[in-house]
Design a protein around this nucleic acid. Structure first.
Lengths: 174, 174
DNA sequence: ATATTTGCAAAGCGTTTGCACGGTT
DNA sequence: AACCGTGCAAACGCTTTGCAAATAT
């Protein structure tokens, strides 16, 4: 079946090769924010002939066509998510690496107000919260929050010491 | 003379080598957010014997000791600024690459409120605004705003096409 | 005196690219 | 048929690291 993202590719007149179809499907099915290696892993399960270079190229192509958005949650690897609903942001659980999405209209307003105060129009912005789960029970009523399952530092970061806000889940200090 | 940051190093019991003293001075004098290559350039002016590996090591050491903070404004190079006053954030002019610092108590409050709503305590956060200067004159009254002079992509980014919010200053499209 | 730090060059990591081949329109 | 996309391996840019010589305490 034609995946949601394949549809977008066709609409934009992109040449649909087998590999692109596979990446499109993997992305359409992804509810998380995979990095390229993870995409490559999932794509390989559907097509053993695909190469990681192609995944890189495809991901870049999709990004350039507004189909995908690149994220940087620290750790040196870019992560991707399909462009969908309105703007939203991410809270990364420093204990588990899990990503919670949220959006907040007041925050939007405030960002524009701050930029305006400095004499600027906002072109884009980057916001990530790094947090630790509270002892008390979490507020139950956030329809906008969506959990995911990606390890904090998928395949051994380039840096043994943790320099990025995401900490190793096995490490319990701080 | 003993630089502000050298003082901090001594307070923390770091061994003060000539190279570290030089990097400390360069950082103490910096009003901007230099990357490692820029630090190396400035340090080399004071000490021809210093190597870029040492600058990398020193910058990491300082960061681990809370003397420095690493920033990522896009472009693949880490940039550094001395840990100073309270938390502040950055607005990057997409036309010129200039960085304006700001802080906003309401924003702080809001971030904590959002995290709380999701059941988290904020450990840290990342916020960068990318903006374009307005036609109208900017508000004149922001004591907290501080301009700087670092080129958007100092020494030719790793990527010819602009994938990061900072755009090439020579390029006038979008 | 001893443990640390430095410089150099090599390696590492994520990502991109040149080239010849293969597939899409 | 013409062009574009792919795979492979090599290259790239930033950053880290192994080792022997130099230096701080």
């Amino acid at each position: 079946m034609e995946s949601r993202i394949e549809r977008l590719c066709i609409d934009r007149g992109l040449k649909m090769t087998g590999q692109r179809r596979v990446v499109a499907r993997v992305l359409s099915d992804a509810a998380d924010h995979p990095d390229v290696e993870e995409l490559y892993r999932r794509a390989s399960a559907l097509d053993q002939h695909i190469s990681i270079a192609t995944v890189y190229r495809t991901v870049r192509l999709f990004e350039e066509n507004g189909i995908l958005e690149r994220r940087d949650f620290g750790g040196g690897r870019a992560r991707y998510e399909p462009t969908e609903d309105g703007p939203h942001y991410h809270l990364i659980d420093v204990e588990t690496g899990k990503v919670v999405e949220f959006q907040d209209p007041e925050h939007e307003r405030l960002m524009h107000a701050i930029a305006a105060r400095l004499g600027f129009d906002v072109v884009s912005l980057r916001l990530e919260l790094f947090g630790r789960r509270r002892n008390g029970p979490p507020a139950p009523d956030h329809r906008d929050a969506q959990n995911e399952n990606v390890p904090p530092t998928p395949t051994g970061g380039r840096d043994p010491r943790l320099r990025d806000p995401i900490k190793d889940p096995a490490d319990d200090t701080d």
